[in-house]
């Protein structure tokens, strides 16, 4: 009974938080004033002739974040290989 009460209260609180967060978000399709986005959209094609601006941002303007992504993948590979490689147990 106590467990059920706690569950209901937690569910109501979580629902209230979610509704509040959705209510406070930007309206759909309108991210608001973003001068940096406008800079990318205006200059990426003319400066470095990048047709796909997303790739230009990922590998050129924000290349430092791509290093982080590569490091995350490399760390995951290292962890998996450390745990599971050479799966032969000593008899």
């Amino acid at each position: 009974m106590v467990k059920k009460t706690v569950f209901v209260v937690a569910a109501i609180l979580l629902g209230a938080f979610v509704i509040g967060a959705v209510d406070g978000a930007h309206p759909f399709g309108d991210p608001g004033a973003a001068p940096m986005d406008d800079y990318f959209l205006a200059n990426a094609l003319n400066d470095i002739s990048a047709e796909n601006i997303v790739t230009a941002i990922v590998f050129d303007y924000r290349g430092f974040d791509t290093i982080g992504e590569a490091a995350v993948l490399f760390t995951a590979l290292t962890a998996v290989a450390t745990l599971l490689r050479e799966g032969r147990r000593k008899p």
């Binding site: 003319n46 470095i48 990048a50 590998f59 791509t66």
Partner: peptide
């Protein structure tokens, strides 16, 4: 990278290191 006006042709496209990376 080369600007859009002179980026035609070439083995590496005008985006430069974006394509290679």
């Amino acid at each position: 990278a080369k600007p859009l006006a002179e980026s035609a042709g070439g083995f590496i496209p005008g985006v430069g290191t974006v394509a290679l990376m």
